[in-house]
Amino acid sequence: MAETRRVIEIELPSGDVAPVVCRRFGSGPFRVVIAAGIRGDAPEGIRVAHRVSSFLEAEEGRLNGTVDIYPCANPLAAHRGTRTWPFFDTDLNRLFPGRSDGHPPAQVARALCDDISGAQQVIELRGARPAFSEASQAIVRHDHAESAELASHANVAVVWRRTPGPAAPATFAHQFPGSIVLEGGTGNRLTPGVGNDLADGVLNLLVHLKVLPESGLPFHWAAIRRPVHVTDAEVHRVRAERGGLFLPASTIWSEVEAGECLGEIVDPLTGLTREEVRSPMAGNILAIRELPVVFPGTMVARVVTA
């Protein structure tokens, strides 16, 4: 039986306590960390963490190393289903590495960093960004070839070697340079199939890290997807030029030609077309907006060219 440990307890003013927990499987110095729920609007990641846990629970005797699973790093936000931590209204994924003498979100960030420090591999599980459907993808730092190679085995459509933006230094993943971020599905929802695919991907990563033996996996290795590898230059953001309702005409990971219609923007009061949004190039749909209200400049899709 896995050991369940409280990493930190958040004391609420009313007197209640909300714990952040870690479930430990196996033992030994080689340690893999799997963390989910940094934001409260990514239940897909939490589901994947639990699927992986239940598999490891049954296989614990065969583990060669330690797997620490943090199923929900931001319990109060998850409780409400919001991106930000309630009351303090802060995005935990902008507070790392945190501080032990700060407010509770900062304390949690610090406690997680201290707890995870020294792990050989960190895997962060997320859902899709709010308002979007996304193809399953692994995001690694652009200059980290080793984690990009490992991420090839994560059962995703795309490995995105991303250059850190201005907000990156305060994110969870950035604290651990070789970390792999897995995401996909739909913002703040569970999507049939996606959780299974990502859970299989995590188990396959554990095999490639030699923590888990290949025999006994709940899938055949040949079923694992072979992702395309892209950098920022191959990921194109498509924006609305008009405000209104964006009605998508494309589905996730479908192939599109240059100039193909990705959807239209209609006047919300009359339904008349204001704009046909067209793909700037040929490629695959990596993400598409599913919440229809848009302003001029709102991103409505991401297209990758391979």
Binding site: G243, G244, P268, V293, F295, P296
Partner: peptide, 10 residues
């Protein structure tokens, strides 16, 4: 003066 404006749905 209106120095900037942007179309808003609804």
């Amino acid at each position: 003066t209106v120095v900037y404006s942007i179309e808003a749905p609804y």
